[in-house]
């Protein structure tokens, strides 16, 4: 079992007022390739911050982070193949797509920038993969429902066939029935493309349904890492 992600003594703190607030204190965990690993805890426990460090969005941190053998450097953005290998689906489907861009642009632009000549075809295929009709491409996000926007966000995240998909509360803003559809879709895509997932959620049920293992967090620290048996046993 290869290790996809190795995190050691990760610490993140922000300056607040005249002091510092530690969002993450000394988190250590490893994720195997092909696994769905969960991070859960109440709001403010630091789970999203860890995800953002892995995504390369949170640049101030200390410790060791390694993804598919690539060492991250603090204060350095992700580049090259690592950037393509790691993608993220954000929590709020209303805020993760550019409000003024059409869906077509949201999907084609990253492909064009990366040099793909057949961007249009790939974008159309991405839409089909997430179960959206092709006529969605001409609309802007405000004409789509929450579930549809989240599907577009997933399609966009999969454009470069990432090996690691980071999911930040991907369904917490959605209705229960739409959540079920999205969770099914995520699992289907994971199986089809052999991805590794790291899933952040405050919802125990979502974690228990999706994850092979999960780390329970509180106040910036990982309290315990639960395996399948432990997840099934709780409650």
């Amino acid at each position: 079992m290869t290790t996809a992600v190795a995190v050691e003594s990760l610490a993140v703190s922000y300056a607040r007022g005249d002091g510092h607030v530690a969002a993450v204190r000394g988190a250590t965990f490893a994720v195997s390739a092909g696994e769905t690993f969960g991070l859960f805890g109440p709001s403010g426990c630091g789970k999203s911050t860890i995800l953002r460090v892995l995504a390369g969005i949170q640049l101030q941190w200390s410790g060791r982070v390694s993804v598919f053998g690539n060492e991250y450097s603090p204060r350095r953005r992700l580049g090259g193949q690592v950037r393509r290998d790691v993608q993220m689906v954000f929590q709020d489907p209303y805020a993760s797509l550019h409000p003024r861009h059409t869906i077509r642009r949201a999907l084609e632009e990253p492909l064009r920038v990366d040099g793909f000549i057949d961007a249009r075809a790939r974008a159309a295929q991405a839409l089909a993969e997430v179960g959206l009709p092709p006529d969605i491409a001409g609309r802007t996000p405000n004409a789509l429902s929450g579930g549809q926007r989240q599907r577009v966000a997933i399609a966009r995240a999969l454009l470069f066939r990432p090996r690691l998909l980071l999911l930040d509360e991907p369904t917490s803003a959605l209705d229960m029935s739409v959540q079920a559809e999205i969770l099914n879709l995520l699992n289907d895509l994971k199986a089809a493309h052999g991805m590794t997932f790291i899933l952040v959620s405050h919802d125990r049920d979502v974690i228990a349904h999706m994850c092979d293992r999960a780390a329970a967090m509180r106040a910036g620290e990982i309290v315990t890492v639960m395996d399948r048996a432990a997840l099934a046993a709780e409650r």
Partner: peptide, 20 residues
């Protein structure tokens, strides 16, 4: 999030500033 997403997809620099 939409800017962060764009950056993660490789959209940087002037294209990001003027397009997004």
């Amino acid at each position: 999030d939409y800017l962060a997403g764009a950056e993660m997809l490789g959209i940087r620099g002037p294209r990001l500033l003027f397009g997004h």
